[in-house]
Every structure is written in structure tokens, then in C-alpha cells.
Design a protein around this nucleic acid. Structure first.
Lengths: 194, 194, 194, 194
DNA sequence: AATGAATGAGAGTTCATTCAT
DNA sequence: CATGAATGAACTCTCATTCAT
């Protein structure tokens, strides 16, 4: 059963993306060869090149597809009032976005050096900085800036560091969110109170 | 005068490590070739093999040298009473250790996928988990476990994420420590108070 | 209005030949890929295969079309008396034939190695030798043989070497013809006078 | 007894150049693969890359070695008085230079398109134009310019076109020279007489 | 303490070509 | 009249590694 050659027709592009992301996340970008991807799909390397211009292009296409929700979140966040409620809502939504594209974000977390040198590097950096900006008050102290960065980072780390902790995944996600809330709340309160 | 060939004699091993670490941190482990290292040192690739058995061995030797303080910190921490004071002292010392070997830790942070597959991967993971254990109370809640992980992670992130923030490096280090303190304190207080 | 898809209908074959020749002349036969040809025509590679059996077949078809006048000139020449007047007339007609299919002859001049290995190679060589034979007296001295070859070659060279010289193209063509006349005349005179 | 591996040591670079030139001249630059060169030498492709940076670099190195006499001839020619005697002497010397590096010049003649796109293309063109300049009087008529170009071109053609004519090679070389003399003499006389 | 010469394996990429639709 | 999808073979080039000297 499964996927006969006939059934596969027309979704090869998608299947390449799926397998590639799986392998990129598992082994890293550099260590994953196109031969490996092709073999796992039972097509030839040349078939990959029918669908994508380069190896990098495979990653770019994955990124563009899966990163869109984050992009939208960023746009949404920029139009909201800078309240604590908004910030919490952003964290909740971000957590959902990360969960929905976990392999991609795990990959980016674990291959920062590789990603930095790729064409998506610039975008990734801008996205992260854009999000941190949504949490940060204009005149935030250094410690508060660290708190906001850390809040975001905690969630990224939650993708894979925390996965070694035992416990129900959903509860872990909540725990991560709780700590992120805490950090952002503190950073928020400090300014509005000060 | 700089370093004439004569002066260099006998410290080639050290120079290889320095250049290798620099390049590993800059470009990643996989993307750095032995040719590149050799060229920058103006020796041949074969010379590298006189001093090190393999490419991986170069990294291992760097890691063994620069990770020693962390190893010692871990040993020390395990003999201390599990007080909040101890935990804070560990954070202070860890911060110093990270600062002293910044390129290595930046490298490990940005190349987690590569490191994981190398022989040092297991050790690195144990080291991190060992440190987190020093902060964690035996019956800590999930949220507290996240707090402790995050405290450590905040410091790693401080190596490179925070470097984009403006401000005096020393003050940034303090700000990072402050947030880490906060997280560990909360995790500590929750248990002893509960 | 240019060439809308509708207008293009039915002359795709011709358009392929045009674009292919243009690229072959520009970049050489080997360096020109079918992908490139197809892209420039905004059709798929498979479309090329609807009209031509192979890449080589494209070139063959171009050659067969554009070389016909030379073929006819050769046949005509063979039926004429071997006078100096005839020889000059052949040169004049050959010059016109070259001018009318300049890109093809430039291509052949600049890609002799490639042409030689293709199926047209044999024909091309026979054509050139056939023409030289029309100039050459049966018992011509070696120097006269060289003169006749050179006369023809001068005209080929005129396609592209001389194009770096400044001056009106039409005048250059005449200058080339003049020199070719000279060479053929000398070779002719030597024999008839000797 | 032929070339045992021991005997080969130390002249591999030279042998690569020899075999490469042979194949380039035989089949063209593009159609000659590094695999082919390596196989004929019974070394691996990687060995070629120990001695040369790229495929193109192999050709460049051959060109630099074998083109030197032409370079020197050009320099010499520029310091001589612009007499007919000088021009003839240049032709004689050029003929010798071409004969000494026949495979290279045959290659360049038959692969003009490929050569043009390579890094040596510019140099080749300058060399030819430089030589033609040595023959050309400043105010030469178009026909005389063609004569001078043709004189040079005749010699290049002599490398391979004329090789189909029967006769002793040395006598053919003389015949070619004779025709070249004639062309240059006419171009020279026209000006000094005019 | 180091080099020169080489290798085997494999990388990413491109090519002309095929064929069911 | 043409496309979409794919292939097999080949390409140039780079890599970590070896070893006699």
C-alpha cells in the first residue's frame, strides 16, 4: 500500500521538502546530502533539480512556507497596543507557531552557524529582532532587554532542550509559556511602574 | 617583530588550535576545511596531521583544554551545600568561564547539530545537564525546571544574541547574570517556601 | 504588436533554429544548452524534441538550410570553364553566400573542433576542399596551393577577424575580395604563364 | 623501460600539461574531461587538482609556457625598425614559434569560441593584434590591412588546413612563408611607394 | 617537525534525452 | 503542438586522510 509511484505524482515537490526538512533537522544542513534526500524518496538527484534550483533553494522554500505564520504574527503584533495583554497574546501565538513548525525551528536553533551564511540568515535575524522589539519598551534597562530576549529564547530552547525533561509535552509547553510570561511581565512592569 | 618562523617553533600545536577555533566559530565546523586552517597558518595540511590525528581531534583537544574550568566548576558545585548562595556563586563562576572561552562556547551554541554528532557531543550534553541539576531541587515543578534550564541558556545566549544590543560588554554580562539570578532564585524559593 | 503566441504558431521550428544559431555563434556549440535555447524561446525543452530529434539535429538542419547556396555555387562552379573570370565570379558569389549566412559561418570558423566531431564535419570539409579545387590548377605548385587555400580562408576570416578593424562593412568586404582576387590571380597566372 | 611509478615522480605536472594539450587539441576544450586526462595518466582526478587549481588553470599554464616565445617575438619586433626586412624576419620567427608549439596553436585555431570565453582569450587577441600591428603601416589602406591580417592568418591556417595537402612538411612551411612574404611585401610596398 | 604527492569518496550541479499525457 | 516530470550519465571540484621522505 502506502505510496505507489502513481499516487506520488504531483506531490513530489512537497515530499522533497518534507524529507529534506526531516534530514536537515536530524543531521544538520551541511551533513545532509542531496543523494540522501533523493534515495529516501526513491528518485534521482536530478529530480530534485527539476523542482528546486539548488540545495539552498530547498531550504529557502521550506522556510518561506513555514515561516509565514511568524511573519503574520509580527505584522499583527505591530498593529496592537503595546499592553501586557498584547505581549502575552504574542507569546501564546508564537508558541503555537513554533509548535506547528517544530522541525524547522529546531533546525534553525541547532544550525545557527549554517543558517547565518545562507540567504535566509538575514531574514531570520530580522524576524527575531522584530519580535523582541514587540516586547521591549523604548527605554528599557539592559536587564529588561535581556529579559525580553530570554523570553523568546526560552521558547526556542523549549523546542529541543526541554524535550529531555520528562513530562507531558503539552504541559511542558505551558511551563515554558509561564516562564516567558514571567520574564515579559517583569520587563513590562518595570517600565510602567518606574 | 611579530612571530618569525623561529619564534613559532614548538607552539604550532597551540597555533593550530587557535586558528581552528577561530574558523570553527566563524564559519561552523563542517564548513571549515583543513586546507583553510593550514593556509592561514602557512603550513601544509600534512603538518596538521603531525599534531592531530583527525579534524575532529583538533576540536576535541580545544574542547578538553577550554572546558576544564567548567568541569572543575561542576565538581566544585557538587560538593557544596545546595543553598541559594551556592547557586548564585555557580552562576558567577560559570559566567566567568564562558567569558574566558567565549569563542568555544559561541561555537557550541551555533553548531549544536554538528557538535551533537561529534564525540564531544555526549560530554557537552552531560555537562549542561549536570549544571542544571545543581540548580534544580529534586522535586521541582515543570516550570521550575524550565527556569533552571533557561537560566543557563540565558547565559549561553548572552554570548552572541545579546552582542547585538548596544551597551558596555561588562554591563551586559551583569544584566545577564541578574536575570539568571532571578530565575534561579524563583525556582529555589518556590521549593523551600512550598 | 510583436509576436504574440498566436502569431508564433507554426513557425516554432524556425524560431528554434534562429535562437539556436544565435547562441551557438555566441557561445559555441558545447557551451549552449537546450535549456538555454528553450528558455529564450519561452517553451520547454521537450518542445524542442517535438521539432528536432537531437541537439545535433538542430545544428544539422540549420546547416542544411543555410549551406545550400554554397552547395549550389559548388555545382555551378564545376560546370564552368576554369578561367580566371570564373574563379573571380566564384569568389564574388561565395562572399555573398557567406554574408547572407554570416552567423553560421562565423560559428563554423570559431568551432572547428566541435564541428569536426559532428555529423556535418565531413560535409563541411568536403565543401571547403571542393571550392579550393575550383581555384587550383591540376599541377599547381605548393605555393599556389597555399594561395588558393588562403584566398578562401581570407574570406572566412573576414567574417570575424576583420570585424575589429574600423571602417564600413561593405568596404571591408570589398577589400577582402580584392586580396582574395590577388591570391587567386597569382595562382592562376603562374600556371597559365608557366 | 617506459615510465614506472618511480620514474614518474616529480614530473607529473609536466605530464598533465602534455596529455591535456594533446586531448584539448584532439577533441576540443569542452569535450575533454578531467576524468579522461586523469585516466590516460593513470592517476586520479584529485591528483590533477593537487597540481592545478581548475581545469582552466591547466590550459592557462600550458599557454603561459608555450606562448612565451611569441611574447618575446612581439617585444623584439617592437624595438626593430619598421623595414620590410624586419617584417620578413618576424614572419620567419613566428613560423618557427608556431611550429615549436603546434598543438597549442592548432588548439587555439580550432577552439576560438572556447578560448574567447576563457581567461586567456583577452591575451590571445592582444597578441594577434600586436603582431598584425608590426606589419601594418600607420596609414595603411583597408586592403593592406586585410593583407597583413591574412598573412598572419595564413600561417595559423598552415597549422592544420594545409596539413591535408600532400608534400613534405618543411616544404609546405616554406610555401606558407612565401605567400605570407608576398602579402606583407605588397602591403609594405604600397605605402612606401605611395 | 614537516612536506610533497597522491587518493577514494563524495559533494552539488548540469546535460541531453524520454515519455505519458 | 507541447508540457511536466523524471532519468542516467557525466561533469568540475573539494574533502579528510595517508605515507614515503
Amino acid at each position: 500500500m502506502g505510496s505507489t509511484p502513481q499516487q506520488r505524482r504531483g506531490n513530489t515537490r512537497q515530499r522533497i521538502q518534507d524529507v529534506a526538512l526531516e534530514l536537515f533537522a536530524e543531521q544538520g544542513y551541511e551533513k545532509t546530502s542531496l543523494r540522501e534526500i533523493a534515495e529516501r524518496l526513491e528518485v534521482t538527484k536530478a529530480a530534485l533539480y527539476y523542482h528546486f534550483k539548488t540545495k539552498e533553494d530547498i531550504l529557502v522554500s521550506i522556510f518561506e512556507d513555514l515561516n509565514r505564520p511568524v511573519e503574520e504574527l509580527l505584522a499583527w503584533g505591530r498593529e496592537q497596543p503595546r499592553t501586557l495583554e498584547t505581549k502575552k497574546e504574542i507569546l501564546v501565538r508564537y508558541s503555537a507557531a513554533l509548535g506547528a513548525a517544530a522541525p524547522l525551528f529546531r533546525f534553525m536553533q541547532e544550525n545557527q552557524a549554517a543558517v547565518r551564511d545562507l540567504s535566509i540568515g538575514k531574514t531570520v535575524k530580522e524576524r527575531v529582532m522584530g519580535l523582541v522589539d514587540l516586547f521591549m519598551e523604548p527605554d528599557a534597562s539592559l536587564a529588561d532587554q535581556v529579559r525580553c530576549s530570554t523570553a523568546l529564547f526560552t521558547m526556542h530552547a523549549g523546542m529541543f532542550t526541554i524535550k529531555d525533561l520528562e513530562g507531558d509535552p503539552e504541559e511542558k509547553r505551558k511551563a515554558v509559556l509561564e516562564v516567558a510570561f514571567e520574564l515579559v511581565t517583569r520587563a513590562h512592569g518595570a517600565e510602567s511602574a518606574g
